[in-house]
Design a binder for these strands. Structure first.
Lengths: 136, 136
DNA sequence: GTTATCACTATCCATGAGGTGCCTATATAT
DNA sequence: ATATATAGGCACCTCATGGATAGTGATAAC
């Protein structure tokens, strides 16, 4: 029991350690597009184009890149239909579903607390101005 | 009611929209160091040096930068003691505490699911090799 | 006088995130 | 014959950012 690091140390992994695999996992999750893709797939399978329309502002490259990462890490399953024109569908795996619950909570938090953060930023900006005036 | 986007649309904000303030909030949260700093502060106030020692691999610059962002957005409170040598302490605000619960869950998830992701990556790598051999 | 602590700030540089455009295949529609 | 839809791959380029390093100021210890 390392008293310096005993809060929720799970399964011997410790995300605070740079070399710990869980650190790399956390890093993979720390991406805007990973959040949004996983959230978007939560309700069911979607095609590339459907995702692109839903995730406003994502470029085809970033979408593909993100999906490849999620597929590689076992969060998303990719199914190709050998038809013309091509049809490819993406859906969450069980592991992905599991994560989606958490990420959706983060997304909900972001939406809920916009006013709080707006207010905090306004106050910070005001304090800045105050400092500037105090200097003059 | 936009039937294309009705899952958990909170308070009129929609993180899927690039111009929505909640999108920016999500982007702010999507950072490895934000995760770890908030998690580290969860149990109580810490000084800069204590944080630096706990967050293995963080540079002074990134630590300060992250703390400034969190302070600006009202998640962290900064208290300066006018002594020599300087003493500065950081602690979560109520808003920060609120978020810390979620982020700690994400961190726990990362630690829990390392084996799953390792396995998925190994399988993906094996599939890759399979493709290469099939080509030859 | 030299070194150390502490919490930074400033600066530079390499990496990589992300954007843009062009390319593939084929069936259908015009 | 040409255009469109579809899901990409691939090469190139830019700019932001992460990271490394050095400096700052005041004091106290050696």
């Amino acid at each position: 029991m390392d008293s310096d690091n005993d809060d929720k140390l799970c399964f011997g992994y410790d995300a605070f350690r740079r070399t710990c695999p869980s650190h790399a996992v956390l890093e993979m999750l720390a991406s805007k597009w990973v959040y949004l893709v996983v959230c978007a797939l939560r309700r069911g399978r979607l095609r590339n184009g459907e995702l692109a329309r839903r995730l406003e502002g994502i470029t085809p490259k970033m979408l593909t890149q993100t999906l490849r990462i999620l597929e590689r890490d076992g969060l998303v399953r990719r199914e190709i239909f050998p038809v013309i024109p091509p049809r490819v569908e993406y859906e969450l795996t069980e592991l992905g579903q599991n994560l989606a619950g958490l990420l959706t909570q983060i997304r909900a938090w972001s939406e809920e607390h916009v006013p709080d953060i707006k207010e905090a930023r306004a106050r910070a900006a005001a304090d800045q101005d105050g400092d500037l005036q105090a200097q003059a």
